[in-house]
Write a protein that binds this DNA or RNA. Structure first.
Length: 330
DNA sequence: AAATCGGGGAC
DNA sequence: GTCCCAGATTT
């Protein structure tokens, strides 16, 4: 892993933000893109948020990308370009919480601050047989304190990365290698046969169903309309086609008040339902049931853009897949 | 304290 | 389908 070959705080920071709730295999190409496109924090700060989000596209949790950009600007503008070099100062960066501040502080600055990520929760809960829920206020405090007590203050970077790697490779969530584990004579969970019930995590999330209708306008001069998502909710800062939310009787969709309002400015030549069966795009908290409507029009207003240039804007994976499949763009 | 925020891979 | 990933932030 390339971020193991450096202690440059900028690169460690990049890797840690990218890897939040993200597997190495998924994050690696993004780390390579970001370090190549933005070799220094100044390059990142000088980019536009849209540029950053375009590079982040497909990785999910887009607030990470927005916060990354904001933090880069903060470092350049308010810290004279000098990367914060203590746990306490690192915590002030947007998108940097306890884990990430600890990781950067230990790896880049040799500060003995213990990291507690999903791996560490698992290793400690099993080895010490702790069943405090890891996502409870008490659990977060308890495991942080324990990790902090255990850290080798002589080599905090090695300790932190070692315990995480041990959790990722040996003490895995499913089917950990207890048989040939160097701790199998002292692991409480193994002795009590509770490997499979630890760590304990509170309640699972409930998924909401949402019904999205995207209006894909096509003008005779090969233009279409996209809009930037603002405000709360998913995909902040990304673009999408004009959208009407709601579950409609498809035969009456084009007569609905919302549809008429959204299309009032244009002269429609034809409407086609691109997919009869809704495309179900699954997020962790939402299942999005999506129908794309292809709407041919004479002319669009001057906010329209060339279909060919769609790919320069950051869009959710759901929209990207449609663009690739329908417009054959990449 | 609980909810929200993506997407993908392993099983 | 379920789990969970080198978590942080908002409500």
């Amino acid at each position: 892993m390339p971020w193991r070959q450096t202690t440059d705080p900028y690169r460690i920071w990049l890797s840690e933000i990218i890897l939040q709730q993200t597997r190495v295999a998924q994050g690696l190409p993004y780390y390579l893109k970001f370090t190549e496109t933005f070799p220094t924090v100044h390059d990142l700060a000088n980019a536009s948020e849209e540029e950053v989000l375009k590079l982040w596209q497909g990785l999910g949790y887009y607030s990470r990308g927005r916060n990354l950009h904001a933090a880069a600007k903060y470092i350049v503008e308010d810290c004279e370009g000098i990367f914060p070099n203590t746990y306490k100062e690192l915590l002030k960066l947007k998108g940097v919480g306890d884990y990430t501040a600890s990781a950067i502080a230990s790896i880049s600055f040799n500060e003995p601050t213990a990291v507690v990520d999903g791996n560490v929760y698992r290793v400690l809960s099993r080895y010490f047989g702790i069943d405090t829920p890891i996502n409870s206020t008490q659990g977060i405090k308890e495991f942080k304190a324990l990790a902090q007590e255990l850290i080798d203050i002589e080599q905090p970077a090695n300790f932190n990365q070692a315990i995480m790697e041990f959790g990722a490779i040996q003490c895995k969530p499913q089917n950990p290698y207890c048989l040939h584990c160097i701790f199998n004579d002292s692991c409480v969970a193994l002795q009590k046969n509770s490997i499979n019930t630890l760590p304990v995590k509170l309640k699972k999330i409930k998924v909401k169903n949402r019904y999205l209708n995207y209006l894909v306008f096509k003008s005779s001069d090969h233009k279409t309309i996209i809009e930037r998502r603002t405000g709360k909710g998913i995909w902040q800062g990304l673009y999408q086609f004009p959208m009407i939310e709601g579950e409609f009787d498809v035969s009456r969709f084009r007569e609905s008040e919302l549809f008429l309002k959204k299309t009032a400015a244009y002269t429609i030549k034809s409407i086609e339902q691109h997919n009869i069966k809704p495309i179900v795009h699954k997020l962790s908290h939402q299942h999005l049931h999506t129908i794309f409507w292809i709407i041919d029009v004479e002319k669009l207003d001057d906010t329209a853009l060339e279909i060919k240039t769609l790919t320069s804007h950051p869009v959710p994976v759901l929209i990207e897949k449609f663009i690739v499949a329908y417009f054959n763009l990449k």
